[in-house]
Design a binder for these strands. Structure first.
Lengths: 351, 351
DNA sequence: CTGTTAGCGCCTTCAG
DNA sequence: CTGAAGGCGCTAACAG
């Protein structure tokens, strides 16, 4: 079965070519990596030179796998998101990657395909010493399988959503506050009968947004009646379906609050089909802001989540946990970080 | 320095607990993974049972790193994209992940942050036996650093763009054909003076789209004069700037073809600011289609790239190369796959 | 069917 | 400052 990969050049080969021992090769290569300056290194500059040129000559490449096995750490962190094609998740991942890179860690981005089973499977594999720590954006409301991974020794931090059955570090947006602000803005604009559209209340973020909605409405004197709630789902189709029902109502609400981007998108899609007048008499505020939000015809306000800041915070939390896990420190209490959202107002009169 | 990760349970521990040898443990665990049926396995069912229960009892977890070192393969493929927060790239990645999963491979998603230097750095690290093969969406027009990685023995396939200085397998969209179709549609609608907006012609995909534009225009009798070309950049700001200039022209083109989504987005953003009449007298066709494209007010046509199909094709190509690399086969000639685009017509009259 | 053995490539004491 | 030697955890011959 011939050779495996192209170059099978090892430290031994380099050592032989340079006329030194493998220990020296290892020293040269590693010391250099950590001390770019290269001062006060426990290896003669002559040996250094010879090792370097031998390595270059032979086209030597570190075998990270062997290094990881020896060190008991891959210096890699994973983020497991419900899907990849999602601006919010990926902005968060990009920020994480940057933050981790500064500490010499790589980021491994993986998807759970919006399925708790798939999530459990991926977590299991990732925890098999492939990564040192995992950041999870939970796909569902329960999290026993996530807790299990953490219990077995791989640090885990949750992002965006809390789950039942797991007590872990978490980084969340201020969902309650963000929804409160958006709905308050609608109220300030004079809208009174406002409905909350979409939302799977088994998910913590949807519940929190609903709570913010309720607080804003209660503050305006108008208590929230159940007729104000159009719950059900977090996807595009859900928004479409709910908007469809709203259009058929005899006395529809004056304004709508969409639980997230997907529901918002579905709602706007239905409105587009309904035509100009439906669009003009509908005002929407929505969680989530993207480069495309300004083009949503009915959108008056959107709540921007601090994706980058959340990514940075998550990166720091895992790294901290990874550090204590490796030095044997016992795990402290779970910490929950909550980051503020930002309300964005959208101009009208473009159509 | 205490324990490393939580459980340091190894095959040896399991072997001891089950009263068998490590070889048997390894057999049981691996055979089971490959033959779910579990027939005709070279190990007694009694031993199987004991190994399984011992493993469960001890909470044993495979150390993938050790396995990879032994096998000389990590069964992981990487995709290196210029950025993560990009629908097209991530749809492609999702499809790849699915396709790879079917063959028992994982996908490692990484970002080159739109920088050739960063791309070279990441490629170098990934090639250090961390992954068996790499799919690259090049960040720039030159690719010597990519070729070098391939030459050192890690199979590489290019996606979306070709680069100079590298002869590798590639999966591309039919950029020329897609642009041709879109511009032809504008011509069929009666528009005559059409401009090509945006485009870094050092990038192969921009060049190909420009060629398609040229062919369509030539076919309509109207040769493309330099006045039809508004080249320059592939980002949102570029689109914004170019649209800004267009609005200031005395005799602006009747319709516009945007080289990609980002440029399109920038153009629409500028149009939104310009107001209703500017929007109404502007017709745009653009490469790239997203769930948001239907909301772009000036958009008449968009060219959908076959992201998923490209991901699947790329996955198959790398896997094939990985297979031949491991069995020592020499590399065949580079193959270039070109997948058809799809023209999407957008309804008007919604504003 | 099962155990023994020999590394995969690297790092890191422990002695010079 | 440098070399020799012992594994990290796993799998795959090769013998029983």
């Amino acid at each position: 079965m011939a050779q495996k990969k192209g170059s099978n050049v090892t430290v031994r080969d380099v050592a032989k070519a340079a006329g030194v021992s493998t220990a020296t090769v290892s020293r040269v290569l590693n010391i250099d990596a950590s001390f770019p300056g290269g001062r006060s290194v426990p290896v003669s500059s002559e040996a250094r030179e010879r090792v370097f040129s031998a390595a270059a000559l032979l086209n030597y490449t570190t075998n990270h796998v062997a290094r990881s096995l020896k060190k008991g750490s891959t210096r890699t962190i994973a983020i497991l998101a419900p899907e990849l094609a999602n601006d919010f998740f990926m902005e968060l991942a990009e920020a994480m990657e940057k933050e981790l890179g500064a500490s010499g860690y790589m980021l491994f981005v993986a998807s759970s395909s919006n399925s708790a089973e798939e999530e459990a499977r991926r977590l299991g594999v990732l925890a098999e010493r492939i990564v040192d720590g995992i950041v999870v954006i939970p796909a569902a409301s329960r999290g026993e399988h996530i807790q299990k991974v953490a219990d077995r020794g791989t640090p885990v931090v949750l992002v965006d959503r809390l789950v039942e059955g797991a007590e872990l570090d978490a980084v969340l947006a201020d969902n309650e506050g963000g929804a409160f602000e958006a709905v308050s803005a609608l109220l300030a604009d004079g809208y009174r009968r406002i409905a909350f559209v979409g939302g799977d209340v088994s998910l913590s973020n949807a519940r929190e947004r609903l709570a913010g909605f309720g607080r804003a409405m209660a503050g305006a004197g108008s208590g929230v009646g159940s007729e104000a709630l159009r719950l059900g789902g977090m996807g595009i189709e859900d928004g479409y379906r709910l908007m469809d029902a709203l259009l058929a109502e005899a006395e529809p609400p004056e304004a709508l609050f969409a639980v997230n981007l997907m529901v918002h998108l579905g709602m706007e899609r239905r409105l587009l089909e309904a035509g100009k007048e439906a669009l003009e008499r509908t005002a929407i505020a929505s969680f989530d802001e993207t480069p495309y939000t300004p083009f949503m015809p009915a959108c008056r306000y959107s709540v921007a989540q601090p994706a980058a800041a959340m990514g940075v915070a998550a990166a720091r939390l895992v790294l901290e946990r990874v550090g204590s896990a490796q030095s044997g420190d016992d795990r402290g209490e779970p910490r929950i970080l909550r980051l503020p959202t930002r309300l964005v107002k959208h101009m009208r009169g473009r159509c």
